[in-house]
Amino acid sequence: MQTLELKIPPVILVLFTASLMWTLAVAVPSLGFTLSASPLVALVFAATGIAFALLGVWEFRSAGTTVDPRVPNQSVSLVVRGVYRISRNPMYVGFLLVLSAWVIFLSNLASLVLLPAFVIYMNRFQIVPEERHMREKFGESYRQYEAKVRRWV
């Protein structure tokens, strides 16, 4: 399964997951639900997710390190400030919040099952390999950071 590690850009995975969510919502309309103010709730989730992800990108760019998660060997510094004090993976947390917003907007329980699938995939094929590289490259500094800050939130 290592062939899938760090291969799919996370943004592509988000778009793929969102399209699968929509497909499920259309295919199983009987699992629809009503949530008062769902467009507003979805907007809040999406805005929060986008902000969280962009803060992560901004911190990486400020540190002069790569934003492309498929090439962790190009990391030049360990970023532990800003939003990275809350999460080791704020961009992925942001993506999860955007996908959660999409579930709320679609108002369908079938699409909800893809949220845990997204987290499982990201953990196994994106985050674990990234963390392995960071431990190798930054050693004890990364281990200390890992001990203090959670993977997601």
Score class of each variant (00 low, 15 high):
residue 20 L to F: 11
residue 105 F to W: 15
residue 67 V to D: 01
residue 120 I to V: 15
residue 62 S to T: 01
residue 129 P to F: 02
residue 95 F to S: 15
residue 152 W to C: 06
residue 43 L to A: 10
residue 44 V to R: 02
residue 8 I to L: 08
residue 152 W to P: 09
residue 32 G to T: 07
residue 42 A to Q: 04
residue 122 M to A: 12
residue 26 V to K: 07
residue 63 A to T: 01
residue 29 P to G: 10
residue 25 A to E: 05
residue 110 A to G: 15
residue 81 R to L: 02
residue 61 R to I: 03
residue 123 N to V: 02
residue 101 A to I: 02
residue 46 A to H: 00
residue 95 F to I: 08
residue 84 Y to A: 12
residue 151 R to E: 05
residue 47 A to M: 03
residue 29 P to I: 02
residue 8 I to Y: 02
residue 57 V to I: 08
residue 27 A to K: 09
residue 49 G to I: 02
residue 133 H to V: 11
residue 12 I to H: 07
residue 94 G to T: 09
residue 47 A to S: 08
residue 135 R to E: 15
residue 91 M to G: 14
residue 11 V to F: 07
residue 84 Y to C: 06
residue 71 V to Q: 02
residue 139 G to M: 11
residue 25 A to M: 06
residue 63 A to W: 03
residue 150 R to K: 15
residue 97 L to F: 15
residue 93 V to K: 03
residue 103 V to S: 15
residue 38 S to L: 00
residue 62 S to F: 00
residue 71 V to W: 00
residue 43 L to H: 01
residue 105 F to M: 13
residue 23 T to Q: 10
residue 137 K to T: 14
residue 60 F to A: 03
residue 101 A to S: 15
residue 116 P to K: 04
residue 44 V to N: 01
residue 132 R to L: 10
residue 87 S to M: 14
residue 130 E to W: 06
residue 69 P to T: 00
residue 92 Y to W: 14
residue 121 Y to K: 07
residue 93 V to S: 06
